[in-house]
Amino acid sequence: MKTIGLIGGMSFESSAIYYRLVNEAVRESLGGLSSAQVIMHSVNFAEIVGYQTTGRWDLAEKALADCAAGLERAGADCILICTNTMHLIADHVAASISVPLIHIVDETSAAIKASGYRRPLLLATRYTMEHGFYTNHMRALGLDPMVPDAEDRQTVHDVIFKELCAGRVEAASRDAYLAIIEKAKAKGADCVILGCTEICLLLDPDQLCLPGFDSTRIHAQAAVTFALSGRREKMVA
């Protein structure tokens, strides 16, 4: 089994989900008491948010590149950035290591295309929805993503940072998200991406008016597929 390197803490709420999903998937695949070989570097999210809000992406690049390089030195065979937003600097992080960076947009796009959809609604932080790195990447992969209007983008963003990242799950916010998805469906969206790794705390992707793709679950499963690649037998303790 290969070792998975996780850059977490953005926020720790979703990093805990990554850890659980990765280990559940390994146990499901190998059986018995099997669990994943994982190394995590969990950052102080307040520092990363400070870089985001001040536009100091150069400092974020250095911080996460240092994390990735440290995980590789510690024995990680692949690296995951456990957040959608920080994939804005994924190319820089990938360039700082010699092991693969498993890219959340690549994996989510592949899952959508494999299911026969093309016009996903992206729900994410304002940075992810507005900076273009995510939607442009998806367009290059043959998809036609859409984002909510400006007011709804702010609503989605505020719920993430003020509630979900702080461990709060509010029914009113769930209703607001569902209304945004309904509007997108009326405008031609054929599926929805839970494009922030905390949104799975609020929404069940299987209980929406459109087919849902949880980027957290997709990303974690891709890591497990990589970690178990080349191993076909099922081991039962």
Rank of each mutant, 00 (worst) to 15 (best):
I4Q: 10
G5I: 00
G5M: 04
I7H: 00
G8N: 04
M10G: 08
S11I: 02
E13P: 06
Y18L: 04
R20Y: 10
V22T: 10
N23D: 08
E24Q: 15
A25K: 15
V38F: 02
I39Q: 01
M40K: 00
V43A: 08
V43E: 01
I48A: 10
Q52T: 09
E61M: 09
E61T: 11
E61G: 01
A65I: 07
D66R: 00
C67H: 01
A69L: 05
L71T: 00
L71S: 00
E72T: 09
G75E: 06
G75K: 07
A76G: 06
C78Y: 02
C78I: 08
I79Y: 05
I79R: 04
I79P: 00
I79G: 06
C82G: 08
C82I: 03
H87D: 07
D91W: 05
D91R: 15
D91G: 05
S96G: 12
I97S: 00
S98W: 03
V99P: 00
L101N: 04
I102S: 03
I102E: 03
V105P: 04
E107W: 01
K113I: 10
S115D: 14
G116H: 06
R118Y: 04
R119S: 10
P120C: 12
P120H: 12
L122Y: 06
R126H: 10
T128A: 13
H131R: 14
G132P: 02
F133K: 06
F133Q: 03
T135N: 08
N136C: 09
A140V: 01
A140G: 10
L143S: 12
D144F: 13
P145N: 05
P145Y: 08
P145E: 04
M146Q: 15
V147L: 08
P148L: 14
A150D: 13
A150L: 14
R153M: 13
R153F: 05
T155D: 03
H157P: 11
H157W: 11
H157M: 14
V159F: 12
F161A: 07
L164W: 02
C165H: 04
C165A: 14
V169M: 04
E170N: 15
E170P: 02
A171F: 05
A172Y: 01
S173T: 13
Y177D: 03
Y177N: 11
I180W: 09
K187D: 07
V192H: 11
V192S: 10
I193T: 06
I193N: 01
L194F: 09
C196F: 03
E198I: 03
E198C: 06
E198R: 05
I199W: 03
C200L: 01
L202V: 14
P205I: 06
D206Q: 15
Q207F: 01
L208W: 08
L210W: 04
F213M: 04
D214K: 09
T216K: 11
T216A: 14
R217W: 06
Q221P: 00
A222L: 08
A223W: 00
R231Q: 06
R232N: 11
E233N: 10
V236Y: 05
